[in-house]
């Protein structure tokens, strides 16, 4: 690839803490993700009641995208692609859904749960919230694949399929979660490379 792209902002959510561009912007006690995500929602005065209908994976992806897209130039928004990946797909919700059908005496499959048994639903949630009629794709890897993420974001921008790319590793299973989201564009201070992504991911 000829063209260079840049990481414009980045955000990590793990261990009850949200770090934006290297700075801790929210932290709470260890009372579980449900409580943590609710407190974060209140802290940032998000005001989007649909948030409470989302599953954990969508809430995690949504919170990170709120912080990064809020700061973005509104003119760029509509051409911001979404490129997300994780390890456990939607298995956190899949297990809950499976429990609702495994006992024949207590069988009540719910469409409101079933819809979240797809990893890419979180992309739909972010697209609706920010009205992103843009390229979106969800991938699964065993671990954060910095090389793929750097290459694919570059491809989207170089082929003019998008002007910016909101990238995210959003892993959620049980009570284990980690989100690392970042915004890639044509300008910025940190070059969008495998090496830089690995450094930021492991920070």
């Amino acid at each position: 690839m000829e063209k260079k792209t840049y990481i414009q902002a980045f955000c990590t959510i793990e261990n009850n803490k949200i770090v934006l561009n290297g700075e801790t912007v929210f932290e709470s006690e260890n009372t579980g993700f449900a409580d943590f995500s609710k407190k974060a929602y209140q802290h940032f005065e998000i005001g989007y009641p649909k948030f409470f209908k989302m599953d954990n994976l969508s809430k995690l992806a949504f919170l990170g995208s709120e912080l990064l897209l809020k700061a973005q130039n509104p003119n760029d928004e509509n051409n911001t692609a979404l490129l997300f990946a994780n390890k456990s797909s939607s298995l956190d919700t899949d297990v809950k859904y499976q429990n609702s059908i495994s006992d024949k005496e207590n069988y009540f499959p719910s469409p409101a749960v079933f819809v979240y048994t797809l990893a890419n639903i979180c992309l739909g949630e972010i697209s609706i919230r920010h009205q992103l009629k843009s390229e979106n794709s969800f991938f699964i890897f065993d671990a954060f694949n910095a090389a793929f993420m750097a290459d694919y974001a570059n491809i989207l921008i170089e082929t003019q399929k998008a002007k910016n790319v909101l990238c995210g590793w959003t892993e959620f299973f049980g009570e284990d979660y980690k989100a690392f989201l970042y915004l890639v564009g044509n300008e910025g201070a940190i070059e969008n490379t495998k090496q830089n992504l690995e450094i930021l991911y492991n920070k």
């Binding site: 690839m1 990893a119 979106n136 991938f139 290459d151 694919y152 491809i155």
Partner: peptide, 23 residues
């Protein structure tokens, strides 16, 4: 590379392959 994007996954995988090869 696993593509898991609901019911477009199968055709999206072709697009992903093409883009990676082109690049």
């Amino acid at each position: 590379i696993v593509v898991s994007n609901a019911c477009v996954s199968g055709i999206l995988a072709v697009s992903v392959a093409k883009r990676l090869i082109q690049a």
